[in-house]
């Protein structure tokens, strides 16, 4: 009975969009031990067939709303028949001390890791949530093709997408990222989050660092598309460190196309501008 309850979904909203539906659901997460929302776009094709699923991981401070309202992904998803699932970025309302203190740690900053440190380790299990619980939920309740999933994200979500793909060879057919935090161990955001969630042992950190994971990757060929705004203040602030990832991938012969987009910043305007390219990138592998 507990399983059934845990799997129960409550529809929060539903809006027709590009021939399909943009919906938001709420459910009790067993991993996160709290009520979680996620957004899901169902393309028209989902009415008659199972569709591949693209998981989108948002960045710091975001909820499931940012992507669906700002990225403009629905048109391309509709055309290519992709379901897009956008979860929230952290557990919410867990009443943990310091949860709401800063914007880059705690609520809205789960960093897609499974926390090992108190007081976070009970709820802050975003890695398991996005790689295990959520796909299970989606596959059970929606016309999703469980064999065809891919992952993408922005900033912290870009980091999340990269580590999910690199840690689970073959699980995701494609991966892409917008302005990802490529080497969190080496930047202020990552160091703050990792030390908070994972403690001082840096070897644990390495299991959540895209650059480190890339240099030890072995598995099916990945094709990584990364877009980065050149005028991104966090790029110049050394929070993103794409060069480290590129170097690791070059070394390890992991195919990456990294596009430094002139004039773009870190915002969703930047995401909006290139989301079509990313959806096509995912569609290429998901619809192959």
């Amino acid at each position: 009975m507990g399983m059934t309850v845990a799997m129960a979904l409550t529809q929060v909203s539903s809006n027709k969009c590009c021939g399909g539906f943009q919906k938001v659901f709420e459910h009790d997460s067993s991993e996160l031990k709290c009520r979680m929302k996620f957004a899901i776009y169902l393309p028209p094709k989902a009415e008659s067939a199972k569709c591949p699923v693209l998981y989108w991981l948002s960045g710091l401070t975001c909820t499931e709303q940012n992507f669906v309202t700002k990225a403009g992904s629905q048109q391309a998803a509709s055309e290519h028949g992709l379901i897009i699932v956008a979860p929230d970025t952290s557990p919410r309302g867990c009443n943990i001390d310091g949860e709401e203190e800063s914007w880059d740690f705690g609520t809205g900053a789960g960093f897609y890791v499974n926390a090992t440190e108190d007081p976070w380790k009970t709820n802050y299990r975003m890695y398991s949530y996005v790689t295990e619980e959520l796909p299970r939920l989606i596959n059970a309740h929606f016309p999703a093709d469980p064999e065809k999933m891919s992952i993408s994200g922005h900033s912290m979500g870009g980091h999340g997408a990269l580590i999910c793909a690199l840690k689970n060879p073959g699980k995701y057919k494609a991966v892409s990222a917008f302005a990802p935090i490529c080497n969190p161990m080496q930047c202020a955001w990552g160091q703050k989050a990792f030390s908070g969630y994972l403690g001082v042992d840096k070897s644990t950190w390495e299991t959540y660092d895209a650059t480190v994971l890339a240099s030890s990757y072995s598995g099916p060929q990945l094709d990584i598309l990364v877009d980065q705004g050149r005028d991104d203040q966090f790029l110049s602030a050394g929070q993103l460190l794409p060069d480290n990832l590129i170097a690791a991938c070059t070394e390890k012969k992991i195919p990456v196309v990294f596009r430094l987009q002139q004039g773009y910043d870190h915002s969703y305007f930047f995401v909006f501008s290139f989301i079509n390219d990313h959806i096509k990138h995912h569609a290429k592998y998901l619809n192959a």
């Binding site: 012969k253 195919p255 990456v256 196309v257 990294f258 596009r259 987009q261």
Partner: peptide, 8 residues
């Protein structure tokens, strides 16, 4: 040219 890095 756009600024594009290709690893392979």
């Amino acid at each position: 040219t756009p600024d594009i890095r290709i690893t392979i």
